[in-house]
Design a protein around this nucleic acid. Structure first.
Lengths: 334, 334
DNA sequence: CTCCAGTGTCGAACCGGTTCGAAAGTCAGG
DNA sequence: CCTGACTTTCGAACCGGTTCGACACTGGAG
């Protein structure tokens, strides 16, 4: 493959001149620039990424860390990955995707060897061991989710508390007096998924303020456990008229479970939930729901990260950004 | 961050000695090696990936190209991505994930700039424009799927013809005389997804040999179209006793569609399909199915690719590898 | 005692870019 | 005609590794 030296020779100039013509960091006469551009075209020159990274200490690559837990509904993760990848490309970056189960080690590996300029962490937990590694490697990092200690890092997350309040209010306005909440599986809470209790606590608090009765349960992540659990819960509360589902796997399975029971929505039961538009379309979910805006969160995270990568000075102090959710009424309540 | 020069100074040796101690390509005395290792530990040295790539022309990174089509069931892609990423890591490689809609351009970008040592293409079509780009860049590439012209490249794919024959035989053994086949959506065939007609043609041929009647339809990729289409098809053939589903989105939605219709499996209808174990578990699918072994395909593809990357000579000529499927009986036929 | 093979280490060149300082050339103002 | 500012280009150093050839030293064979 052609090197910058070949281009220089072919155009009758020095290497540095080619470099400046490429980057535009110094003025080059029109005539020379055209000769160089033609040489580049004729030789099919593309700069060597490794050499460039070495010289500039910039790789134009972002690390994306995913964790897949046995007991989790994996398809939900895709909603974040795609927008992140797309937004990164828009800004000139590529994505190094890491699925190593040992997150902290992976962070050190890709950061210490300077393979990436910044790191995105998905699915952050309250006491996420990856945070310590991320702080240690002194590279910009942005997290989707929320941790207990947010010092020194940027976070982007949905305002789950507000989401819960919106849904409870929505049902309250329609005169529901007894609700059921199906939260994420128990192990998610144990692992430290803060969105689970942030949502639930806000829902409980808001229901109490309205004088509404609310029964909280953890959902399951796999069939047939999901169906059994939903049926058991509905059996236990025959007088409840509203169902709030905060659980991807459960809501994806809900249409078939309810139709099996002969429960019509919204005539027999009002159902509201929380999922992204993409997820809803992918699984054809018909429920009024707060839009978790995964694409928006992903895009914001990447934008912020790249801002910090390119200009650490003007990026200011790290912040926690809570995105205010939007409720999308699909008519599944009465 | 510490460089190899810092380590050398700290251990009182030259840079080259440190390099040889690290790579083991020349013998280093035990005493010196220990001094070097200690220096590395004390300084927290990790080699700079860019510099190493520049010197060795090896990045230890593989490109993974995904395409997401508007009208496709995206969650299915995850079954391939994860095993590919895992296997790559096992062999010491990282994954650069590219979702650029312009595949050929993306291939040139990551290959010409030498960001990757090899490339994996997912979801290949008969006349895939990415193949030309892949051949042009002269980097090892492996494709999941099958194209019309396989010259010069490695392919790994399931033997869809054999899969279809196994399923038809399975139903034939159970005395079914009239079958329905729901194939991938029409646009998949138009786009050139060869697995669609390879499966269908084999099924039709095998059914004919057994004297079985078979009705072929294209499925849909989104609700509510999926449900409407399945209902219409079942209405049109009330005497059919067996259903073969070759369509991820349809099979994921099938349990609820059938229960809505009050159709019991296998009492009223025998159902067989084709999906990977992971996909089946994720969506809790209860159907007897040929295991598409996405994890196995992904792992084989990566192994072959890395074989070619590390030793192009012994890898031999490019081959098309058809993996023979396995039928997993889950009792959904009678 | 000399010669030779083998072991362990070093110095220098190289991979392919970027960037700084300086030099050469042009042109207007004094 | 000289000076200074500006434009355009070049050469050299540098980023941080790897690798080749050479050199010093050791020990055994002849």
């Amino acid at each position: 493959m052609a090197t910058i030296q070949d281009v220089a020779r072919h155009a009758g100039v020095s290497r540095s001149t080619v470099s400046y013509a490429l980057s535009g960091k110094r003025t080059i006469s029109t005539e020379t620039r055209e000769r160089i551009e033609q040489a580049i075209r004729e030789l099919g020159f593309t700069p060597n990424a490794g050499a460039r990274a070495l010289a500039t200490s910039q790789t134009m690559v972002l690390g994306l860390l995913l964790q897949f837990h046995e007991d989790e509904f994996a398809p939900a993760m895709l909603q974040y990955v795609l927008p992140i990848s797309m937004r990164a490309r828009e800004l000139g970056y590529d994505i190094l995707m890491v699925t190593d189960p040992d997150g902290p080690a992976a962070i050190h590996r890709i950061a210490d060897s300077r393979m990436v300029d910044g790191i995105v962490l998905l699915d952050v937990t309250a006491e996420d061991p990856r945070l310590e590694a991320l702080r240690a490697v002194r590279k910009p990092g942005v997290l989707l989710g929320l941790a207990r200690d947010t010092a020194g890092l940027d976070f982007v997350d949905l305002d789950f508390g507000e989401a819960a309040r919106m849904l409870v209010d929505h049902l309250h306005e329609r005169d529901h007096r007894e609700l059921i909440l199906i939260a994420p599986p128990h192990h998610v809470v144990e692992r430290g998924g803060t969105y689970a209790w942030r949502f639930r606590d806000a829902a409980v608090e808001r229901a109490a303020r309205h004088g509404i009765q609310i029964h909280c349960y953890h959902g399951e992540s796999r069939q047939p456990a999901i169906g059994e659990s939903v049926n058991r819960i509905l059996d236990a509360h025959p007088t409840a008229t509203g169902l709030i589902v905060h659980n991807d796997a459960t809501v994806a399975a809900l249409p078939s479970i309810l139709s099996d029971r002969g429960v019509r929505v919204p005539e027999d039961l009002s159902v509201v939930s929380l999922y992204s538009r993409d997820f809803g379309e992918e699984f054809s979910l018909p429920y009024t729901a707060v839009d978790s805006a995964a694409d928006e969160l992903g895009r914001q995270a990447v934008s912020r990260l790249i801002g910090r990568v390119t200009d650490p000075a003007t990026a200011g102090p790290p912040i926690v950004r809570f995105v205010t959710p939007v409720l999308r009424d699909r008519g599944s309540t009465s």
